[in-house]
Amino acid sequence: MKSALNDGASRCFATLDAFLLASARLAPGIVLLDADNLQDDVPGAIAALRTRGSVQAVLLSKAAPDFAFGVAAIRAGAVDILEKPLSEQRLLAAIRLATSRPRPRTPTTIARNIDRLTAREREVVAWLLYGLTNKEIGRELEISHRTVEIHRARLMRKLAVPSLPALIDVVLAQRDKLPDVGIARPSHAPGA
Rank of each mutant, 00 (worst) to 15 (best):
A73R: 04
G131R: 10
A57N: 02
D66S: 11
R122L: 05
I137S: 07
A73S: 15
T108Y: 06
W127M: 09
L60W: 02
P107H: 03
P102I: 08
R103C: 02
V124N: 04
K62G: 05
D80Y: 09
S87L: 08
R96C: 04
V71T: 04
I137P: 07
I81S: 07
A78K: 05
A126H: 05
V55G: 04
I95R: 12
I95G: 08
A47W: 00
R96M: 03
W127L: 13
A78D: 01
A94P: 06
A94L: 02
P107L: 02
R122Q: 11
Y130R: 12
L117I: 09
N113C: 09
T108H: 09
R101T: 10
A126L: 06
V55C: 06
L117W: 00
V79C: 13
E121P: 04
I74N: 03
I114P: 00
P107Y: 01
V79S: 10
A68R: 12
A93D: 07
E121Q: 15
P107A: 07
R112N: 06
R116I: 04
G70Q: 07
A57W: 00
G70L: 09
T106L: 13
A64F: 14
V55I: 00
K135L: 15
D80E: 15
R116W: 01
T109A: 14
Q89D: 11
D115R: 15
W127R: 10
L59W: 04
R139S: 14
K135P: 02
K84Q: 10
A119H: 15
L132C: 13
R50W: 01
A68H: 12
T133D: 13
L128R: 13
R122C: 11
R120S: 07
P104C: 01
E121H: 02
A111G: 15
R139V: 13
G77P: 09
T118R: 10
R75H: 08
V71G: 06
R103K: 11
R75K: 15
A94K: 10
D80N: 13
K135M: 10
A93Q: 14
R139T: 14
L129Y: 01
T108V: 08
G77R: 11
A57I: 04
